[in-house]
Design a protein around this nucleic acid. Structure first.
Lengths: 329, 329
DNA sequence: GGTCAACCCGTGAAGGTTCACGGTAGAGAG
DNA sequence: CTCTCTACCGTGAACCTTCACGGGTTGACC
């Protein structure tokens, strides 16, 4: 009653042995065509389905599993990453198990840790917390870097992208720079501290910096931030938005307050979201090259797999960001 | 060399038996605190990690796996669904394995079929093809319905949503209706045939239908379709867009050609994308209630699990769509 | 001293599959 | 007729964990 149909049931039904059923099911040799048909028929009849667990158990996990932790599947940035990871992983014969932390990364980690061999992801928590929650699993930190043993990382070199963007904007005539930074740190830690992007940006523009305001990392937050920035500093001619989502809002906001983009103000985002190509004018952005983020991650993961997931010296990679010139700048 | 560290290695290192290690690792009783510490230490030392396969094998798969096939993780509609499925599955103790078919659903199915117990998803292929590719796994069709045995389904009642939308638009004064339909069938089968949405729409508006054009299912495709529709029929005062993505384009297109929304033309989309709330004016849409799509799917899946995934009579559910009145209509 | 619980720990079996090897039958060669 | 070779099929073992049960100590209590 409710008992699972095993390979032995099929074997009995077909009047053969386990091994013969295996040969039939997996299209191996050493079996006559007639027996193969007989077995396949019996299997079909009984609704036999090999147990993936028993199979993986004996196969020494030829097909590995990678766990991906993202903040939310409702944020296009993370879904883009998930999409890239998924195709990269699938292409290399890895399973990808996705968990959306929705703020609770530790919880997501605990869930994944019993199901996968490696964990990759973005985490709000400290490196040490992450490492502990991973229960000894190797961890690949995305877009940041850690010095902890057993914690690998792939960071994205946004700094160079920002420098490139600023010098290219200068070539196009920009002289008065502004930025809308993220209010993230304020929400989390109660007090605002400049994001790394802001620091790189300030270093790049030097004394041509006119003003910086802070906004929520959403489309509408970007719109409000942009409007605020231009209200205070109407003479700004180039704005770096913290991310593409906010930049999308900025473009929209520019429409409403009657500012011409890129005529009066050039707008640059950060992320390289596909969505940025669908607005008018299409968004110029510092593309984070999530594709090679994914491939670098998988490189690390495969190295880890070769070492049988033992503790090996942390691997750190860096991915260059690159400009995606569209029409908003 | 490269051998996996098993429970026996830990047991030997700690000078105890397998069972004791199990007790220590899983926080069970019948073990002294000192032994537990000793075992945990040895496990930590050796980097021991229980094999999920061996564990699931003996546990009769207490934690099941559900495979989800979506067309693409770059389409916000599908990522919204994936997000809902993920949280619903996680909440019920299921794993979710996502596969992006990117057109090749059969390939994705074959991949998933060895890893999960049930498959749910959207498929371009015929029901029979899907059923065969699933290799005997039960299948839950999303947003459509099949009469095949062993193929369950959760459909979304968009028809009633469209009827509701039309009558509400009439109350608001709309009298000349138009629609931008999807060109999907044309791309796939070479010849355009009206989508079900168009048929329901036409049935609802009756002789108040002014015109229908066809467009690509993207933001820009929606913009082009909308502009085209208004060029041919400038007197239209309400437009149903095939989906939200296209509706977003329509709103944008209305901006560019100087049409006031909803003053001159009311725009309604279909999907209920979160993104629709971020544009100006916010998009009114026929929301597909992906939340209950997900929960209904999981209901079916759990019923299937109770029946040990045997062939049982197909289960069909229907989810009502509901209007999300925002400002574009 | 004996009985009994409570506590702690170990052994056989099971779970479903694949790998490595061994075995049988028939055909062809000598 | 005997030997060898090929084609086909079966048996033991291994993969790693948990469950069910059984065994041994210790201390309390009569």
């Amino acid at each position: 009653m409710g008992k699972r149909v095993t390979i032995l049931d099929v074997a009995a039904a077909a009047g053969v042995s386990r091994q013969t059923v295996t040969r039939a099911m997996n299209g191996m040799g050493d079996i006559s065509e007639s027996t193969r048909r007989k077995v396949l028929e019996a299997a079909e009849q009984l609704g036999y389905r090999p147990s993936r667990h028993a199979r993986s158990l004996v196969n020494r996990q030829k097909t590995h599993a990678l766990g991906l932790v993202v903040a939310s599947l409702r944020n296009p940035y993370f879904t883009d990453i998930a999409a890239d990871m998924l195709s990269e992983a699938t292409a290399r014969g890895w399973q990808l198990m996705i968990a959306a932390s929705e703020g609770e990364a530790v919880e997501a980690l605990r869930l994944l840790s019993t199901q996968v061999d490696v964990i990759a992801g973005h985490f709000g928590e400290s490196d040490a917390e992450v490492r502990d929650a991973a229960q000894g699993l190797p961890v690949v930190l995305l877009e940041s870097r850690s010095e902890l043993p057993g914690v690998h990382s792939v960071e994205i070199d946004i700094a160079s992208g920002i420098t490139d963007a600023v010098s290219a904007l200068r070539e196009r005539g920009a002289r008065r720079f502004g930025m809308v930074d993220s209010a993230y740190s304020e929400r989390i830690r109660g007090v605002y501290e400049p994001s790394p992007k802001r620091e790189w940006f300030e270093a790049a523009v030097g004394d041509q910096l006119v003003g910086v305001v802070v906004g929520e990392e959403t489309i509408s937050g970007g719109g409000r931030g942009f409007a605020e920035l231009l209200r205070v500093h109407p003479d700004i001619d180039a704005v770096l938005m913290f991310n593409d989502l906010m930049a999308l809002g900025a473009i929209q906001g520019a429409h409403s307050i009657g500012v011409d983009v890129p005529g009066e103000v050039r707008i640059v985002g950060v992320d390289g979201l596909a969505l940025g190509d669908a607005v008018d004018p299409p968004l110029t952005t510092i593309s984070l090259d999530q594709q090679s983020l994914a491939s670098n991650t998988l490189d690390i993961v495969e190295t880890l797999a070769k070492a049988d997931f033992a503790r090996i010296d942390p691997i750190h990679r860096s991915v260059r960001s690159k400009m995606l010139w569209r029409e908003s700048a």
